[in-house]
Structures are given as structure tokens and as C-alpha cells.
Design a protein around this nucleic acid. Structure first.
Lengths: 238, 238
DNA sequence: CGTCTGGTTGATCTAGATCAACAGGAGTGG
DNA sequence: CCACTCCTGTTGATCTAGATCAACCAGACG
């Protein structure tokens, strides 16, 4: 399921500049490099379980991690997606309480684990890190609240288009014909879990926007045929 | 619309113990007492507008404030309720960016305003305050994410019951007959905005749970007739 | 007295849920 | 190699929860 690859060195890690670790000094970096455990994970692997105590934080180098929330009745929802350059599991660390979500590997990923004790040490050594965590929390809060407001006011089609545009911003490209395109990193059922609907409804939604000529879906590949209209439906504030 | 009442003194303010100001020392408290502006607001007043720059933070002494988000199409949703002992407007202060929501007075309220410059000074003088703000952000994030997950997985009836139970925890009491009861602080249309539905749907929802004998609604007064069942529908994790 | 706001009700429409069937791979094991 | 199951996705038929539009009612307030 997982393999270990200790070759990575945080000093040159390209992801680090976007994480809370960007302010580390040379000696602190050396500490992290020594402390971290780098591993590759296949899709389906679990970084940590909802309800488990926090053992440390996870720095994503590449791949996609989903934060999943399970309720009492066994319903689950994907509440957040995390990609390379993001740190997950930090909230349980800061709050000193159990994880509220589980972290599931959605696409093959390379992730560095840094144990709680080291993070604590770094936090004491470099107060800047605390600031970065605060910023991270604020950013997560803004994003979640925006999605929350969107779900209360917008219909499904608008939320679906918005989700696609988020993906496009992150991993969009131009196809051979110069058209905007993207390769969805998730399967249909995961898209459904992000929107809080059933997989069947995703199928029908895709079919309807396809027949209207807005987008072309070929398995996970999406070609955007009418960007203006897609953006209009998704809503101005992207 | 509003009246000014400078008589309040933060030193004895009962709300302070639950806010980020709980760690203030004597001299810092004196600064706040001097800096703050205490006012009474009627329902409908606006503390700040979505998109406006942050001028300071608002300490709620009593009453209920709603944070409202407006989207491009003019749809609005109530994304958060804030009561006495809570500080609002702190996020725009921390992020140094415009307010993402507007703050609207929902029931007559007494609110202290503390200008940005003073908050900055306090933040420098007492680093504990920064910690408190981080905790506040983390708490808001937890709450919003929990609601977000709930909306994705639960049906309307469950969310409605959950909302009522939240109110009950905060302002519930026992009626003459010893039954659990509460007085809703909001009008029907505001309840609807919290759930992202139409006022007509709230009416019908109330009618249906009433005829089932779960609850009695008399205008804004609610008597809970079958607490076990209400809790079951609301979901275990309250 | 008229007007306005907040709330309820009725009739109808529609978006998703639900349940069931089925199709195409990808393994897996004979 | 084939037969098998598992997994993912699609489609169809039907049902239901809310939206929508319209009417109406009660109280507050000029």
C-alpha cells in the first residue's frame, strides 16, 4: 500500500514555499528534514481516521487528499480537498483534540509526516510558524464559509460548474485544439460526495450540460466548450 | 436607530470572560474601557457591510447579531449567528481585507466597538490575545465545517431540529408545566435564511412537526413535546 | 381607514432521490 | 484462455421534498 522514500530533503522541497514551513531557518529545516517521514500512498489509503488523536501533521508533496466527514448514520461527505503544498491534520494538532475528519488518499500521493513533538518544538523555536497556522485556519474558514453560503443560495448546477472551475484553475490546460480542458482527479462518486448528491444525479447532470453544449465529458477528461456560459452559471466570484 | 451609552466598564463586563479579552491586564483593560464605544442597536441596524474595510471589532454584550452573505445574484443567507460574549468583525481585522459578510442586528443589542488601532496595540502588548483569536478562528471553522457536512448529508427536517436544539441549548427553559421550551429570537423568514429555504417551506415544516406532536409552535414560542424524538432526528452529535 | 409587514395556505411544477437493471473493464482464479 | 466477480458508471421509472406563484389573513401603524 505504501512505500518509504527518505531521499526527499525539505531544503529544496518545491512545496515548502506554500506551506507554514516557509519561514524556517537553516537549522530548523535540518530538524524537519531529519524528523519527517516521506511515503508514497496509493488511492484509498488513510492518513488518519476521524476521531483518532493527532499524531502529527502531513505535508502533501503531490497527489490529492480528501477530508471526509462521517455522521452518526454512516453518511459521508467530502468536506475539503487538499493538494501538493498543503498541510493536513494541523487543526487537530492546534486544538489538541481528536481529528474531526478522516484524511483519505484520493489519487496516488507523496506525503511527508512530521510528528507532533517536532511540530511543537518548531512552534516554540519560530513564532512565525504560529502566524502561518493562523493564516491557514483563516483561509480554510473563508473557503468553507464561502462554500457554505453557496450551498444555501445556489442550485446544484451552479455549484457543479463552480467546482469544475476550481479544478480548472488548479489543473486546467489547453487541449490540442486550444480549448480549455482538464482531467478530473476524482471518480464520479467522489464528485457526488463533494456536492452532497447521489452518483446517479452526477451522471444526469453531466449528461444535461453535455447535450447543452457547455462541456464535453470523456471519462475523466473535460473539454470546456462555452467558457463564458460556464463561468456565468458558476457565479462571478470564483 | 442607535443610542450611545458610555457607562459600561469592561472591568466588570460579564461577557468579557468568554471573549478574546479575558487575558487583559489592568492597564490594558483601562485602555479598552477608554477606547470602546458602547451603543444600543435596534433590530435591522447594520454593524458593517459586506465588502467594507474593517474599522474595528465589535464585542456583543447582549442581543443577537447575524452574519449575512450576499451573492452576485442578490441571494442572501445567514451564515452565522452571534450572541452576547462573542466578538464579530475580527476576521477582516486579522486578514486585513474587506468584510466578507455584513453584520446585521437581529434582536435589540448592546455592542461595544473597539477601533482597529486599539486592537492592534493590544495585540502587540499581550500576545495571549493572538492565541485567543486563533482559538476563535478554529472554533468558527469547526462549527462551519460541521454545518457544511451536515447540509451535505442530512435532510431539511434534521437540520431544522438541529437548529432548534442549538437554540434550546442557549436560551431554552422550562415552561409552567415543566416542559422544555424556548422563545425563538428570529422571525420565520430568518429561520428560512439560516436553512437556505423559502419562508413558505418553514411554515409547512413547522406545521408538519406540530401535527406529528413533536413540538408546539405558538408564534415564536416553542414547546418541545417529544425531546427524545427531536434529538434523534437532529442527530446524536449536538 | 388604508397600508405594510409577517405569516399561512393552496395548487402546481421540478429537481433529485430512490430502486432496479445493465454494461464495460479490471482483476482473479480455474 | 475463459468464467467469475467486483467496481464504476449509466439509464429508466417512479416518488417526493421544496420551489414557485398566488391569494389571503392578522396585526401594527401611519
Amino acid at each position: 500500500m505504501t512505500t518509504c522514500d527518505p531521499a526527499h530533503d525539505c531544503t529544496n522541497c518545491p512545496s515548502r514555499q506554500t506551506t507554514e514551513w516557509r519561514d524556517l531557518t537553516g537549522s530548523e529545516l535540518a530538524l524537519v528534514t531529519e524528523a519527517k517521514r516521506t511515503r508514497s500512498y496509493d488511492a484509498g489509503a488513510i492518513l488518519y481516521d476521524q476521531g483518532a488523536d493527532c499524531e502529527g501533521v502531513y505535508c502533501i508533496q503531490s497527489g490529492m487528499i480528501g477530508l471526509r466527514r462521517l455522521d452518526e448514520d454512516g453518511n459521508s461527505a467530502l468536506v475539503r480537498l487538499c493538494r501538493g503544498g498543503m498541510t493536513v491534520g494541523y487543526r487537530a494538532f492546534l486544538s489538541k483534540r481528536p481529528h474531526l475528519n478522516s484524511a483519505e488518499v484520493l489519487t496516488p500521493s507523496v506525503v511527508c509526516f512530521i510528528a507532533r513533538s517536532y511540530v511543537s518544538r518548531l512552534l516554540v523555536a519560530n513564532p512565525q510558524i504560529g502566524q502561518r497556522f493562523l493564516q491557514h485556519a483563516m483561509q480554510d474558514l473563508e473557503q468553507t464559509e464561502a462554500e457554505y453560503a453557496r450551498i444555501l443560495t445556489s442550485d446544484l448546477r451552479s455549484r457543479f460548474m463552480h467546482m469544475l472551475m476550481i479544478f480548472y484553475e488548479q489543473i486546467g490546460y489547453e487541449d490540442e485544439a486550444g480549448r480549455p480542458a482538464l482531467d478530473l482527479p476524482l471518480k464520479r462518486s467522489e464528485l457526488a460526495e463533494l456536492l452532497g448528491i447521489r452518483p446517479e444525479s452526477i451522471s444526469r447532470l453531466i449528461k444535461s450540460v453535455s447535450t447543452e453544449g457547455l462541456l464535453d465529458f470523456d471519462d475523466r477528461r473535460v473539454h470546456i466548450r462555452n467558457m463564458d456560459e460556464v463561468l456565468r452559471i458558476a457565479g462571478a466570484t470564483m
